[in-house]
């Protein structure tokens, strides 16, 4: 059945079954490939998007529950001030190895810094532990978050 979603500021009407996960609407219907599939059961965070500014796992969010709410994906997070800072820090620190999980990491980090502009290590642990990185770039993820928060000066040593 038809669903009208607000994705990255645009109203989009799509015709899919109610139980279709938001992830597959984004990827295969709206052709927004930045949001990634990792586990399908909200355990890895690769599919993280923002729903009214809050991070959610789109692989386990049925499309029927998101009509009328604001969905932001990695493709548009750079249009927010915090999102842009996070992306810039990710680049400066050169966080990625394979890069597959990083869209989800950036979405979670942006949500963290929006809620807690100057996070402690414990805040980072609490907000980022839902996002797996199989390459284990965790050292640099932590550095990049601190750099985006202005807690560390530009640092490229890891």
């Amino acid at each position: 059945m038809p669903h009208t979603l607000t994705v990255n500021g645009q109203a989009r009407t799509i015709d899919v079954e109610d139980d279709t996960p938001l992830l597959w609407v984004l990827r295969d219907v709206l052709d927004l490939k930045g949001t990634k599939f990792g586990c399908g059961i909200a355990l890895c965070g690769a599919c993280t998007v923002h729903l009214d500014g809050q991070p959610v796992r789109s692989c386990s969010t049925p499309v029927s529950g998101v009509a009328g709410r604001k969905i932001t994906t990695i493709e548009a997070i750079g249009e927010t001030q915090v999102g842009k800072k996070v992306q810039d820090a990710w680049l400066a620190v050169d966080v990625a190895q394979c890069g597959y999980c990083q869209a989800g990491q950036i979405m979670s980090a942006t949500a963290l810094l929006s809620a807690i502009p100057k996070p402690t290590d414990a805040d980072i642990d609490a907000h980022m532990s839902g996002n797996l990185c199989r390459c284990a770039t965790y050292t640099r993820i932590r550095t990049a978050i601190k750099q985006a928060a202005g807690l560390e000066t530009a640092k490229t040593e890891g």
Partner: peptide, 29 residues
């Protein structure tokens, strides 16, 4: 010299890069 990943800008903005992102005209899944 410390040199950043050439795909970094595409990675942090979610541009298609990976096998899973490939799409072809008339493609089925």
């Amino acid at each position: 010299k410390f040199t950043r990943d050439v795909d970094g800008p595409a990675i942090v903005t979610g541009r298609p890069l990976f096998g899973i992102d490939v799409t072809r005209p008339g493609m089925l899944h």
